[in-house]
C-alpha cells in the first residue's frame, strides 16, 4: 500500500513550532511520508508544496489565534487550486467552542494540546481514507 504523504508546517505570523515538529515526528514514526515546511509559511507556498508532492493531507498548527480567518482563506485557496481532495488537519491552542466552526470550513480533524500520539496518527490515516473514499 502506498504510504500516506502529508505536508506539515505553520502558516502566517506565528512561530511556535514545537508542537508541529513533534507531530511530524509522530507521523513519520507511524510510517507516513512527512514533508515538513517549518513555520512562517504563506498559504500558497503550502498548497503548492501539496500539489508538487501530490500529498494526501496537510497538517497545520496554530498557537497564536487567527486560525478561523487563516483557515477560511486557506480552504478557499485549496479549492481554487483544486487540492481540496486532501484531508486538512489542524492542531494547537484552539478554543474548543470554535471547533464546530472549523469543521464547517471543511477541516477534517482538530487536535488540542496533549492529544495522544497514537490518536493523532490513527486519525490522520482515517481522515485520509475518508477523503479518498469520497473522491
Amino acid at each position: 500500500m502506498k504510504k500516506i504523504k502529508i505536508v506539515t508546517g505553520k502558516i502566517g505570523l506565528d512561530d511556535h513550532f514545537r508542537g508541529i515538529i513533534v507531530v511530524s515526528d509522530i507521523l513519520r514514526k507511524a510510517g507516513m511520508e512527512v514533508v515538513y515546511l517549518g513555520s512562517g509559511q504563506r498559504i500558497d507556498a503550502v498548497i503548492n508544496t501539496m500539489i508538487q508532492e501530490d500529498a494526501d493531507a496537510v497538517g497545520l498548527s496554530f498557537q497564536c489565534g487567527g486560525y478561523l480567518e487563516i483557515m477560511g482563506m486557506f480552504m478557499k485557496r485549496l479549492k481554487e487550486l483544486k487540492m481540496d481532495h486532501a484531508a486538512v488537519i489542524i492542531g494547537g491552542t484552539i478554543h474548543p467552542h470554535e471547533i464546530p466552526k472549523l469543521k464547517e470550513l471543511g477541516i477534517s480533524a482538530v487536535f488540542l494540546p496533549g492529544a495522544p500520539s497514537d490518536d493523532i496518527a490513527v486519525t490522520v490515516a482515517r481522515e485520509v481514507e475518508k477523503k479518498k473514499a469520497a473522491a
Partner: peptide
C-alpha cells in the same frame, strides 16, 4: 494576512 491576529498575542 493580519486578519484575526491583530492585537491577539
Amino acid at each position: 494576512y493580519a486578519a484575526g491576529q491583530l492585537g491577539v498575542t
